[in-house]
Simulated assay, not measured.
Amino acid sequence: MLSVWELFWRMTVGYVTAFLRLIWKPAEKSIRGEIALVTGAGHGLGRLFCIRLAELGATVVAVNKNKARNTETVEILKQMGVTAYGFTADLSKAMFVIHRHSFASYILFTRVASKIREEVGDVTMLINNAGVIYPTDILSLTEEIISNTFHVNVISHFLLIKEFLPNMKQNNHGHIFAMSSQAGLMGTPFMTDYSASKHGIVGLMEGLRHELRRQNMDGIKITCVCSSFVSTSNKQYNCAHTRIHRKEIS
């Protein structure tokens, strides 16, 4: 257990460091030439991520289950004069358990990843942004809703990381980004499944960060953003944009 003085010292160092970074901001890294895959790219934050990544010089791979919306995003990027690709994938079908229903879905999921590697190249920036939310009380949650929430919000993260991390480790170069939520930092009423899934993302990313450090993979960066309410095209839960709290960056 930390002593009072140790705690005071760590807090002081933390505040001083934060203050100095406001004055002398660290240089932003260049992502020009990186291949960035963005899930949930058909609208909202996903589309905005694609546009900003393209502006910074990355080759963008847009992934969304809605082909029409995804195509719109890709067309916007191409009108900007940048290289962009679109792939259709339903992340609610991302499953580990192999049985007669999910086996075909898992194979399809890995085939999309293989197709991306073949047509575009090795992904060096993975932006796990896709998410779903069904705000209701816990007794109204069906098994289908709970399953869909966890498959999209967290299990897909595991599968995409497993697909693209090996090459990042081979080159000790890459960046994995996850969109969590403030609901992943504290329990949230009427969003118990969503909150639990977002807690899972925070645990995944913190664990992965420590794992990579122990493996001396200092060239692979981990970012987990825990946002507050953000206005998106989700008609079920559309709230005013407030602030974004960055949980982990390494």
Rank of each mutant, 00 (worst) to 15 (best):
V4M: 06
V4P: 00
F8E: 04
W9E: 11
R10T: 08
T17D: 14
T17M: 08
W24C: 12
I31Y: 09
I35M: 00
I35W: 00
A36L: 07
G42T: 08
H43E: 12
H43D: 13
L45S: 05
F49D: 04
T59M: 01
A62R: 11
K65C: 13
N66P: 07
A68T: 04
T73R: 02
K78P: 01
Q79H: 12
Q79Y: 07
T83K: 14
G86R: 04
F87T: 00
L91M: 12
F96N: 06
F103I: 03
A104R: 05
L108S: 14
S114G: 08
S114Q: 14
M125D: 01
L126C: 07
G131A: 14
I133S: 10
T136R: 12
D137G: 01
I138T: 11
I145T: 01
F150V: 14
S156K: 09
H157Y: 14
F158R: 08
E163K: 07
N172I: 15
N172H: 04
G174H: 02
I176L: 13
A178W: 08
Q182R: 07
G184F: 06
L185M: 10
T188Y: 10
T188E: 10
M191R: 13
T192R: 00
I201E: 04
I201D: 09
V202A: 07
M205Q: 07
G207E: 05
Q215C: 10
Q215D: 15
N216R: 14
M217V: 02
D218V: 15
V225K: 03
V230H: 11
N234Y: 09
Q236A: 11
T242Y: 01
R246N: 04
I249T: 15
